[in-house]
Design a protein around this nucleic acid. Structure first.
Length: 496
RNA sequence: GGCCCCAUAGUCUAGUGGUUAGGACUCCGCUCUUUCAAGGCGGCAGCACGGGUUCGAAUCCCGUUGGGGCUACCA
């Protein structure tokens, strides 16, 4: 049994969404499960769309998720180059073979003409297929067209009789009627191959054993199988993955608002959570476990267990899973992940001292069980890092707008200022002491205090939170808030 | 329009002829707590529809409906 070789073959469009990454992940999982090779190939045969930075977008996306490739443009390999625009001679030589064998022919129709004819066929209720106009031109006719200054592309002469059967690991047996396809362009006027040709040639040249790609390519497989036959290529095994759909249940795409992979990183998603989440889209481990380490996923993965039905990417569940990973993460590690977000927001120094880092670890330890995304540290929990925070509506409504609040805050400030020891225990004692003295429940002091010092009504244990802030800072926040409240500046904003 | 794929709650899924149809997210209660967007407990909600096959169908077959994909000198 030969070694399993799969490939991820994206077009460098400068955009990589969850669906693309999902396909890459499943290829990678299969390769790792089988102890095979995962090849990265760049399909830049669309010169019009190509952008050089786009290849980096692909690298970044794969690396972010933790998918390493065994062969690729940057690291080479035995079957390179791995960028299609650098393999033009190969494709062209194969086209020559097909031409010589009469399996392909020159087509002189212009894109405009083709479009017009398609329109006409559509108008007449006919399927808009190529009509074969140039299929049987004589050499004289071709000469005449060239003399007119016409340029040509190359079409593959498709077999229009019989049926093509695709044996797909995921989709099962799919049968297409050959009479339904028309001669397809395999080489553009520019000399570039089309996707179909390049893909078929490269998969063979790179010894790809399993083509795992999105189901949108399933109909193309009919052509690919014919191309392989004409080229004398043994077809690989096919596995067409169901599409990952957007919330509107249509194919993810840039224009309908699909989010690029890097955006998820910016939104505070952990790659390991996304890895786990994406693996569970169209594949299930079989038992009821959902949080699985990568090794476990690799071990259990199989194409046979992949579903053929499409799935909707559910952000809420992704967020939940992200939270699970954050909760399970060591505080030190969490601190390392959070740091770039804080630096970016100007809330922390880029090169913190060990003491500062240790402090950040404590913040993470306190926060991690209620954090779903890393960005909360720069939003809900920014009070740890700066005095500049907003007083939220709820905090104003419930506590800051009350008559007795300024006085309470002042009293608390005074007590806290006098504390000899600044730790959670002492703080708690002072807070509860004040409540007892005022003859109110502890909550009547705790809540206004939280509202004043953090601007919110929610968060971790107040005493442990205060402990992590500077004593003088807490005191000044209390006084500042007391003054603002007394001045009537913390009234709730008007609704609507 | 034609061809193909898909169909278990709002979402992700388990299930391969006999189950009280299981789990997860969301949502809703209750509970703990100084708060919840944290924890614990509980609940709502599903086999798209119609025909077959069978002693028996979520499961097999056909049709309908719905959704999606392809139908490019894009991939």
């Amino acid at each position: 049994m030969s070694e399993v070789r799969v490939r991820f073959a994206p077009a460098p469009t400068g955009f990589m969404h969850i669906g693309n990454l999902h396909t890459a992940l499943f290829n990678w999982l299969f390769a790792r499960n089988q102890g095979g090779k995962f090849v990265l190939r760049i399909e830049d045969t669309d010169e019009v769309r190509f952008t050089p930075e786009a290849v980096n977008v692909i690298y970044e996306g794969l690396r972010w998720l933790g998918l390493d490739w065994d062969e690729g443009p940057d690291i080479g390999g035995p079957y390179g180059p791995y960028i299609q625009s650098e393999r033009l001679e190969l494709y062209q030589s194969k086209v020559q073979e097909l031409l010589a064998a009469g399996k392909a022919y020159e087509c002189f129709c212009t894109p405009q003409e083709l479009e017009e004819r398609r329109q006409m066929m559509r108008a007449r209720g006919l399927p808009p297929r190529y009509d074969g106009r140039c299929a049987n031109l004589t050499e004289q006719e071709r000469e005449r067209l060239r003399a007119e200054g016409r340029t040509s592309c190359i079409r593959f002469r498709v077999k229009q009789t019989g049926k093509t059967v695709i044996k797909d690991i995921i989709q099962g047996e799919v049968v297409y009627d050959n009479s339904l396809i028309a001669d397809s362009i395999i080489q553009k006027t520019s000399g570039f191959p089309t996707y179909h040709l390049a893909c078929v040639i490269d998969d063979a040249a790179m010894k790809i054993t399993h083509v795992i790609r999105a189901v949108e390519h399933l109909p193309n497989t009919q052509l690919h199988l014919q191309l392989q036959e004409a080229l004398g290529i043994e077809p690989p095994q096919y596995a067409h993955l169901p599409l990952v759909l957007g919330p509107d249940r249509t194919k993810l795409s840039k224009r309908h608002g699909a989010v690029s992979v890097v955006e998820y990183a910016k939104m505070g998603y952990l790659p390991e959570a996304m890895f786990n989440f994406l693996a569970l889209l169209g594949w299930a481990p079989g038992d009821e476990q959902e949080i699985l380490p990568p090794q476990e996923i690799i071990k259990r993965f199989s194409l046979q267990a992949c579903s053929a039905s499409p799935s909707v990417f559910d952000m809420q569940k992704a967020e939940w899973m992200n939270g699970e990973y954050i909760k399970a993460m060591a505080p030190e590690e969490l601190a390392r992940r959070v740091l770039p977000f804080l630096v970016e927001a100007g809330l922390f120094e880029a090169d913190p001292s060990p003491e500062r880092m240790a402090w950040l670890v404590r913040v993470c330890e306190l926060m991690r069980e209620r954090v779903k995304r890393l960005t909360v540290f720069t939003t809900w929990a920014r009070y740890f890092f700066t005095d500049e925070y907003e007083y939220e509506q709820r905090a104003r409504q419930k506590w800051l707008n009350r008559e007795d609040t300024p006085q309470k805050l002042e009293m608390l400030a005074e007590r806290l200022q006098k504390l000899q020891r600044w730790d959670a225990e002492s703080i708690e004692e002072a807070v509860r002491g004040l409540a007892a003295e005022l003859g109110v429940g502890a909550g009547q002091v705790i809540h206004p205090c939280r509202a004043a010092v953090t601007g919110t009504t929610i968060g971790p244990s107040l005493f442990h939170l205060l402990e992590l802030l500077e004593q003088s800072d807490v005191v000044s926040r209390l006084r500042r808030t007391a003054a603002l409240a007394a001045g009537g500046q913390l009234r709730p904003a008007q609704e609507g």
